[in-house]
Design a protein around this nucleic acid. Structure first.
Lengths: 332, 332
DNA sequence: TTGTAGGCGTTATCAT
DNA sequence: ATGATAACGCCTACAA
């Protein structure tokens, strides 16, 4: 009832463990007939190498750590959930395994020092840079996903370009008083989206009005709070939300003020979250290619593991405007 | 630049590796003065035991596998995302690590045979029972989470009781023609919720009408499809949805038919998904205690690892009715 | 082609 | 209290 070992197979077949090891690993010559017998017995016993023994001698675990800030993973979006499953799927394709861990501060997660992983995917832009740098100093192969930092490999969303496009969409529909709301601007992605919004205004010679910008707070009610406080002091004809959950909860605030969407206020979100299709009306938004980004990050990480000394690559993935009903038709 | 080992510390301090091991592990006596020196040097070097070597001799990895069906984890809900982070948090509290893996069929995931984990949390009711049983036969400690099966430890939601309560809520509001919709009934949880619905009808002497039951398909549009086909043939005054995403997309279908919520049709969901608060009107639903369930499952699993030969425990966690606006006031 | 032997880093069992 | 030493299961020279 105990796990089969090389020794067990060796005894059964009547050869040495070395031969069995060679036969199973494919490295080194071994007679075709005995190889067959060995493979058969191994199959029969359901043999698989013990990972502890293997990684002790090989000095690699074939595990990849998926690190995310505890804040993020608790968030209502499914955004990082989809990234997680996409990363796992891709790792599995390459026979790697996924270690999932959350971090709450800058202390080094134990899986690093204990040598539990060969590399790291650091997800989201809420991980403290100080932590990222101390990880980097340990020379663990790593890539940032949905985040970027000078000198460190990264795969990230074109937030500026996306927000630029979203805002431009509203401008083309005839809007001039366009607001920007976010749960918080204390977040790189949201700040970049804000930047894209400003650049679009500027590119179309529209004035930037700080009155039209509002922050709420992190979490479900963020968009509601931001939109409510904004509506108390001014009245835009359109609003760019930093992400879809923010947009969805802003829509509730708009309605609570007796205004209609999109007739009174048009709304555009960001992420193309699954909930975008459930809002009323369905939300126009910027699609973010989570799964594609996951695949790219895994590929880059595995390459870095094989070949550590490389200049950092920064892979920016564009977004795509998905038009639904929350922006309506051109203003007349 | 290479990881510090026991040997390195031993050399620095001028003792044997055995002494260092004892000093660091706390097992076995060691002179107070030398222990101090050892601890200091270990700290200085940032020593942590190599996990491969450690688990090779100890025969345990301090890793727990989190297994989920690929279908599930790709689902729009954040349901399993919240469970995942809650499980990870609880494991970390106990100095365990989380291996995340998805399964697509009944083949044994490699992490089992390779001995990468000490135990398993099997999440959701879409994992094939045949797989669960072959895992069980390998005598790996495991507990089902949000699922249950005879003979296997489990922590699960009181689906029948919850749906009973949800349906009863509608009946108390005066509804008599109450529909039940689900993405699919090819799922234990959904079937149990259906059962709870039927029991509530029976308990209140209302007839069960198959016309009032509809399935859609898995995914975003499931509730929309189910509700649309239902409305084509009949007209309930209320509907119980098997979960919140189903309810949310059913609400779109109801509105698409020109009907109002809750005036024409009252809606109740299940799960208390974060999106429940974003729907219009906010969704009345049954709260499921994901985090509590996660904690219970981890506690049970760690107990089973310490003490394997125990009769199976089946821990059922009740749900709680959360009243929002989607059911309105009593019918007059 | 095959077997012997040494070692990966840690723990545990003996002596001393 | 401390130090050799033998595992744990696997891989890989090197020898036969």
């Amino acid at each position: 009832m105990t796990r089969p070992t090389l020794k067990a197979i060796a005894k059964r077949v009547g050869v040495s463990v070395a031969t069995v090891s060679r036969a199973l690993s494919g490295r080194g010559r071994v007679d075709e007939a005995t190889r067959e017998r060995i493979l058969r017995v191994a199959e029969e016993l359901g043999y698989a190498p013990d990972m502890a023994a293997r990684s002790l001698v090989l000095r690699r675990t074939e595990n990849i750590g998926f690190l995310i800030h505890a804040l993020q993973s608790l968030s209502p979006h499914t955004f990082y959930g989809e990234i997680l499953t996409a990363v796992e799927r891709e790792l599995r394709r390459h026979r790697y395994h996924l270690h999932f861990a959350t971090v709450e501060d800058e202390t080094l997660p134990p899986l690093i020092k204990e040598n539990r992983v060969d590399g790291l995917i650091l997800v989201g832009c809420d991980l403290p840079p100080s932590l990222i740098h101390s990880l980097k100093e340990r020379r663990i192969p790593l890539v940032l996903l949905d985040n970027h930092l000078p000198g460190i490999d990264s795969v990230f969303t074109d937030n500026i370009g996306g927000a630029f496009q979203a805002t431009t969409h509203l401008i083309r529909l005839g809007h001039r008083r366009i607001a920007f709301i976010a749960e918080t601007l204390d977040n790189l992605s949201f700040r970049e989206r804000f930047e894209g919004y400003r650049q679009a205004l500027e590119a179309h010679s529209l004035p930037f009005d700080p009155e039209l910008v509002a922050e709420g707070e992190r979490g479900f009610e963020g968009g509601f709070l931001a939109m409510s406080s904004l509506l108390k002091r001014t009245r835009p004809t359109a609003v760019v939300a930093a992400n879809d959950p923010t947009a969805a909860s802003a829509m509730r605030a708009i309605r609570a003020h007796g205004l209609r969407i999109p007739e009174d206020i048009a709304v555009v979100g960001f992420d193309d979250d699954p909930l975008a299709v459930h809002t009323d009306p369905p939300l126009t938004t910027m699609r973010v290619f989570r799964s594609k980004m996951a695949v790219l990050a895994v590929a880059r990480l595995l390459d870095l593991i094989k070949n550590p000394e490389q200049p950092a690559l920064h892979i920016r993935v564009e977004t795509q405007l998905i038009i639904r009903q929350s922006c309506g038709s051109p203003l007349t």
